[in-house]
């Protein structure tokens, strides 16, 4: 359902600050995949999401979503099929609007905007149940300004907003990093449940190796703008937590060595 063909993203090209965040990355995501993505800080994981969503332009390569070339489509057009939770908990919700208003904005995905009421009474029960499912007590605070919530609470609401209209592709960027262990576990369970229930294709970035192994059907490790390895089915089954840690370690020491080699 999603193909990336030799996608490159470079920031600040031609300046001393040039960063080649994605370097000819190729990836083929199948319908119904639940992919976990791991990789060191700065590996380009978030940039991969931004390229797919259209938040950053790509220099080279093509992005094909549902058989359609979307490489040059603006972000707001692609987003009809894409639900996203951002790494930064503050990016996914609108401060100054209440929880109910935020959910109402999310409920307008793909709808024609008109002069009907923006907050609809018929959605009240739906919103209540959605918030109840994350068990943070937010169902009783629907009219609270989102700016007054904690980062974790906002992130949980972002997940609801991203999934409630059942997008085809769901991209989660460390969406449990800001949550306490209980809420984090709950949200992961919820993510898996929603993915199954709605038949979503999910790509989930995580720094937790346990999580990467525990959920999904495919693991991708990224490094320096490349896919280092891509394990699915049987290969993934045989991959243990320690294998993964080992690979992660070797990748980092390897880099250090090569850096030193270059510098000396």
């Amino acid at each position: 359902m999603l193909q990336l063909k030799h996608v490159s993203v470079t920031f600040n090209e031609g300046t001393p600050n040039e960063v080649r965040a994605l370097q000819g990355l190729s990836l083929d995501v199948k319908h119904g995949d639940f992919i976990t993505v791991i990789g060191a800080n700065g590996a380009g994981k978030s940039t991969l999401f931004n390229a797919v969503a259209g938040t950053v332009p790509v220099d080279r390569g093509r992005i094909i979503l549902n058989g359609k070339d979307v490489t040059n489509q603006p972000e707001y057009r692609r987003s009809l099929d894409i639900g996203r939770v951002f790494q930064n908990p503050l990016v996914g919700t609108c401060p100054g609007l209440t929880i109910r208003e935020n959910l109402s904005v999310a409920a307008m995905r793909g709808k024609h905007l008109g002069l009907l009421p923006g907050v609809k009474r018929k959605n009240n029960e739906w919103f209540y149940q959605l918030l109840k499912s994350i068990n943070l007590g937010l169902e009783n605070r629907l009219d609270t300004d989102v700016a007054l919530l904690s980062g974790g609470q906002r992130q949980a609401i972002t997940l609801i907003m991203a999934t409630m209209m059942k997008p085809k592709l769901l991209m989660l960027d460390e969406h449990t990093a800001a949550l306490d262990p209980n809420a984090g576990a709950l949200v992961i369970d919820l993510t898996v449940k929603l993915a199954e229930e709605y038949g979503l294709t999910v790509i989930m970035i995580t720094h937790s190796m346990h999580q990467a192994i525990a959920v999904g059907n495919r693991i991708i490790m990224m490094n320096r703008g490349h896919v280092l390895f891509d394990a699915s089915e049987s290969e993934r089954e045989s991959l243990s937590y320690h294998d993964l840690i080992e690979r992660f370690r070797s990748l980092q020491t390897g880099d250090e060595l090569s850096d030193r080699a270059v510098l000396s």
């Binding site: 969503a53 938040t55 972000e75 707001y76 057009r77 987003s79 009809l80 894409i82 996203r84 951002f86 990016v91 996914g92 919700t93 609108c94 401060p95 100054g96 609007l97 208003e101 935020n102 109402s104 904005v105 999310a106 307008m108 995905r109 793909g110 905007l113 923006g118 907050v119 907003m161 991203a162």
Partner: peptide, 17 residues
């Protein structure tokens, strides 16, 4: 509502099409 959301956080508005 969308107009108000857009001013507060245009990323959200774009993310919802």
């Amino acid at each position: 509502l969308m107009l108000r959301a857009s001013g507060k956080n245009s990323q959200v508005v774009r993310s919802f099409g």
